[in-house]
Nucleic acid binder design. Structure first.
Length: 420
RNA sequence: GUGGGCGUAGCUCAGUUGGUUAGAGCGCCAGGUUGUGGUCCUGGAGGCCGGGGGUUCGAGACCCCUCGUCCACCCCA
């Protein structure tokens, strides 16, 4: 038994899962780059204060932050998400708007790990700053939907809501507070506690006794301003124009305090655990200002790699790509031929692998099979003597002799493309 | 953070009411096929039964603690 294990909530992603991750990120990249989003790589840690803007009352900030003092005395936190970092970057660099960026990478939250919930977890996402246009809201949502569909996911549901502007939100929180206070005796103890911290979040309770009260709660729609209402309706009709189906959910409030107006969430109906929410986002029009920048509109979404991959598993789509290599060199003489031939093949833009330690031809062929090689090149004493190579297309059951100097041209017949 | 289930070979799991040298399948290695993989057959390697303490003549099985994992709550991706 090994002495060291990964820390709770973290793990190694090995092949073939690692290849699947990379493919996942690749699909995301091409989806959003096709819509004009540029890649941004924010730091993994920064000043704690940046993340406090996520909401003083949220668990993400109060309980789950990985924070520490560095040797220079700075109060640092590992990023729990990337939206705040992107907004900080916007304030710091003042790019021209619209500023549309995408990211991919790990975030950190100190939570009790479960399946689909890790302390180091990867998200991909996009953020678009400086535009108030409802078409942008619809574009962002449409890109997420397009991405899911590109992965092959079908059992995805989109919930959408509007939280109104910041004034609306405060008004609504107060109204909800009063409503729940009236029915406090019927609420669960957990919800009573939540009520004090953040009344909106009581709507998210899944506890049975709370449901009756929640159903009767006032909807935010009754509170929001005309401007917010018009914006929301424009977003909905822009989604209709793209034939993107959605469900308006009055109770959708989401966990981070910075959300304003449009909010949305994607749920996989193929998943059964509690972690069916595989992605979400919304507008955060006040966030840039809160970080010291000019009043700037913003919208984006993030989705979790693990959970989305779990949903892919549940729907049996987006399998890990097969391992493959152009050529596998089998050398039963002394290994020097495999050594030099592999180098030559690689230099000419093909991929090549080989076996080591001069194992039996049978063992080397087995390794060739496992490597996913298109062809095996076999070099034994006969081939060395004739300055030739035995070429065996894997899967064909046939093989033929190729003069050593013709080998690169022959390999080219079997490879679809050359990688550098 | 609270409550519950589960930790046995690299992986998935069996292991009767505690009883000698702890098993299977897959994977890995070797041989059958002295120059040939993907099928088949045979053999082999690999375990302080998560860790610590206790009960007992005797513990993988029972008790306590601890760590890990999974589930629910919480929260969220």
């Amino acid at each position: 038994m090994a002495d060291f294990k990964t820390s709770p909530g973290t793990r190694d992603i090995l092949s073939p899962d690692s290849a699947r991750w990379r493919a996942f990120q690749g699909v995301f990249e091409s989806t959003v780059e096709a819509a004009g989003y540029d890649y941004i790589i924010p730091p993994m840690f920064e000043d704690l204060d940046v993340f406090l803007r996520l909401g003083e009352a949220t668990d993400v900030v109060t309980k789950e932050m990985y924070d520490f003092h560095d040797k220079g005395g700075r109060h640092i936190a590992l990023r729990p998400e990337q939206t705040a970092s992107v907004c900080r970057a916007f304030v710091e660099h003042r790019p021209t708007t619209p500023w549309k960026v995408w990211y991919s990478g790990p975030n950190f939250r100190y939570e009790k790990p479960q399946q689909g919930r890790y302390r180091q977890f990867d998200q991909v996402g996009i953020e678009a700053l400086g535009v108030d246009d409802a078409f942008l809201d619809a574009e962002v949502i449409a890109l997420a939907a397009k991405f899911y569909s590109a992965l092959g996911l079908r059992k995805i549901e989109l919930s959408i809501n509007s939280l109104g502007d910041s004034g609306d939100r405060d008004k609504y929180a107060k109204k909800l507070s009063e409503y729940f206070a009236k029915h406090e005796s019927k609420l669960t103890a957990e919800s009573k506690a939540t009520l004090l911290r953040n009344p909106l979040r009581v709507l998210d309770s899944k506890r049975e006794p709370d449901q009756e009260i929640i159903i009767g709660a006032p909807a935010i729609r009754e509170t929001i301003s005309n401007e917010s209402r018009e914006h929301f309706e424009a977003v909905l009709s822009a989604l209709d124009a793209l034939k993107i189906s959605y469900k308006i959910n009055d109770r959708l409030v989401r966990g981070l305090d910075y959300y304003r107006r449009t909010t949305f969430e994607f749920v996989s109906t193929a998943l059964e655990a509690a972690h069916t929410a595989i992605g979400g986002g919304g507008r955060y029009d006040g966030l840039v200002e809160a970080l010291g920048g000019p009043p700037t509109a913003g919208i984006g979404f993030a989705l979790g790699l693990d959970r989305t991959l779990l949903a892919c598993d549940a729907e049996s789509v987006f399998a890990a790509p097969l391992k493959e290599v152009d050529v596998f060199v089998v050398d039963t003489v002394d290994g020097t031929h495999a050594h030099e031939l592999c180098h030559q093949i690689r230099t000419h833009g093909f991929s090549a692998d080989r076996a080591y330690d001069l194992r039996s031809i049978k063992a080397q062929m087995k390794a060739a099979d496992r490597s996913g090689a298109r062809i095996a090149l076999i070099i034994g004493s006969n081939e060395v003597e004739n300055e030739s190579v035995m070429l065996r297309p894997m899967g064909s059951g046939e093989q033929y002799v190729v003069p050593r100097q013709d080998i690169l041209n022959e390999i080219a017949k079997y490879t679809i493309k050359t990688n550098i």
